[in-house]
Computed example of a mutant assay.
Amino acid sequence: MPVAIVGVGKIARDEHVPAIAADPSFDLAATVSRSGGLEGVENHETLDALLQARPDIPAVSLCMPPQVRFKAARAAIAAGRHVMLEKPPGASVSEVLTLDRLARRAGVTLYASWHSRAAAGVAMAQAWLADKRLTSVRIDWKEDVRKWHPGQDWVWQPGGLGVFDPGINALSILTAILPAPVHLTEAQLSFPENRDTPIAAELTFTDGADLTVAAAFDWRQEGGEIWQIEVETDAGTLRLTEGGARLAIGDADQGVASPGEYPALYSHFASLIAQGASDVDASPLIHVADAFMLGRRIAVDPFHD
């Protein structure tokens, strides 16, 4: 199936292009990029130009920043194309829900992808926790923003999410592995004095009964990334580390194998299209929206890239 990538930035080059190349279901037929796209691949400067010139391309993968993704997704859906959304799926919850309705009315597939859910240890963690009684969950998701988003001003602008851009990866795993949903009860958000999005966040969730989930996100991490989730249960401790790539239960490393996160996403996208189905789970983004609604704002030192 011919597919087009819209927005040829770092994530597209590093993850989407290789995943498409390795997937027998897709062929990268075109790109949309004002910077020239990819060598050897047909490029269009705008999505409208692509949609008009290439009616034979039935699917598009939107990899631009979330602030501008809604307009592009709406146009693609209106043109009858299947759409895959890079995470986060939109700049607001209402955008995502609107796109879901539009896709269903148009009879096309909409896939709000969460790449961290495809990390090697996540599915096994979900299965192991399904019949356990959970007593507590601790999330630590900390990295250096200068390493992962150098010079990317959009992450500091409204809709760019700030530290929730990586933090939502943890929330996407959390909402996948817990046997029952949780909701946010309080948050503390640290905003640099010169930025519109937070650089750190402390969150507390509950299931409404006995379970408490504590999360710490921080973009000021030095000395290596920390991407881990620890779950205490009546049958022992489960740990997901390296962003979900490694799973340990008690002292035993489970050594889970995986074809990779983005290959799994494209495999799922192809399956959804074949089934005439969509997959639009907004729950991680809802948690982020709740954090901005309930969060106590703390001013911290200015951040300079």
Rank of each mutant, 00 (worst) to 15 (best):
W141G: 12
E143Q: 03
E143G: 09
E143R: 03
D144I: 01
V145W: 05
V145L: 10
K147Y: 00
D153M: 01
V155P: 03
Q157L: 13
L161S: 15
V163K: 13
F164R: 15
P166C: 05
G167Y: 00
I168D: 00
I168Q: 13
N169Y: 10
S172Y: 04
S172F: 02
S172V: 02
L174T: 01
A176T: 02
V182H: 04
H183T: 06
E186Q: 07
A187T: 00
Q188G: 05
L189E: 04
S190I: 04
E193M: 01
R195T: 06
D196V: 02
P198S: 03
I199F: 10
A200C: 09
A201D: 04
A201T: 10
L203P: 12
T204W: 13
T206F: 12
D207A: 05
G208S: 07
D210I: 05
L211Q: 08
L211R: 11
L211E: 13
L211F: 07
T212S: 15
T212L: 14
A215Q: 08
A215E: 07
F217G: 05
F217V: 02
W219S: 12
W219K: 04
W219H: 13
R220W: 05
Q221C: 10
Q221H: 12
E222T: 14
E222H: 14
G223W: 02
I226L: 07
I226N: 09
W227K: 15
I229G: 00
V231T: 08
V231C: 05
T233A: 11
T233N: 03
T233V: 13
A235Y: 03
G236C: 12
T237K: 15
T237P: 07
T237D: 08
L238P: 13
R239P: 00
T241C: 07
T241V: 07
T241W: 13
G243I: 00
G243D: 11
G244C: 08
A245P: 09
A245W: 15
